[in-house]
Amino acid sequence: MSDFIAMADREILARHGLDSFDSLWDLRLDAVDEPNTGRGGWSSVFRLDLGDAAYYLKRQSNFLSRSLRRPFGEPTFAREFRNIRRYQELGVPALQAAFFGTREIADERRAILVSRALDGWRELAAWLELWSSMLVEQRSAVIAAVAGLARRLHGAGQVHGCFYPKHVFLRETQAGFDTCLIDLEKTRPLLLGCRDRVKDLETLVRRADAWGDAEVRELLACYLELPADSGEVNGWLARLASRRRNKERSQ
């Protein structure tokens, strides 16, 4: 069975004897958190340090997602790996896959996904915890970077589907901030225009507790590339507020 191994990581994995599905499956490591035991199986995440290179190794068994196209299900990592590749092709910054493979053994469906660790990056949720102590210029740079990432994502015709602050990563640079996305399992094509875009943005701002009305307006102005007091920005603020009310009523 053919497995994916990124060219940039092939030599590193081979040097440590970890360039095969079985070697990665049998490797003994401590999980970074409790296994996810939903979907009738399990899924675990491990930190993998190989000298100067660092990765996250994810393994799962019978942890499946189902769709009209795949009614009998497939490992959730398979969908995430396809989306990682799609983001790469579309030029949307996201985590990078080093290895992917699946196996069917009797009634067990196994999958492995190895991605490069985002060392030196920090999730937006962590930046939000520091928000009150950050300089105004630094806050604006974060907002502009996140808005630019959302604009690039939607401009590529994709909806993240789980656009939480913990899934947006930033790395500070001299020019501002680099950004990238993780957790791409729920990504899908942007089919409903403004409605899909509002869904991603409302999901983000609803969980960005440190942001007030001024920050949300600034985010939308950067996203739309329009003045903050423009009528279109006001219209988008109303759309986000309407979606939040609908979400709260449905809970």
Rank of each mutant, 00 (worst) to 15 (best):
R79T: 05
R15N: 13
S242N: 08
R82W: 00
A210H: 08
L135F: 04
G38E: 11
A111G: 01
L192S: 07
A14M: 05
D183S: 05
E185H: 04
D33Q: 03
I182S: 08
A31D: 01
L90G: 09
R15W: 12
A228H: 02
P75K: 06
P71W: 11
E248S: 14
A94I: 07
A175D: 10
E80L: 02
I12A: 06
R110P: 12
L90Q: 08
A97G: 02
D26F: 09
G212F: 12
R59V: 03
I5K: 01
G73K: 09
Q138D: 03
A126C: 12
T173P: 01
A141K: 04
S65P: 10
E215H: 07
E80A: 11
Y223M: 00
L191W: 05
Y223F: 14
L27A: 10
C180G: 14
A208Y: 00
G231W: 14
L68K: 13
A31K: 03
R122D: 14
D229Y: 04
Y87S: 13
S65N: 14
G40M: 14
A125T: 15
P93F: 08
R243V: 11
L24Y: 01
R249D: 11
Y164R: 08
V205D: 02
G17D: 03
V233C: 05
W25N: 13
E108M: 15
T179A: 01
H16Y: 09
C162D: 10
R82Y: 00
R239G: 05
R116P: 10
A144D: 06
S20A: 14
L50E: 06
E225R: 13
L220S: 05
G193K: 11
K166D: 14
D209C: 07
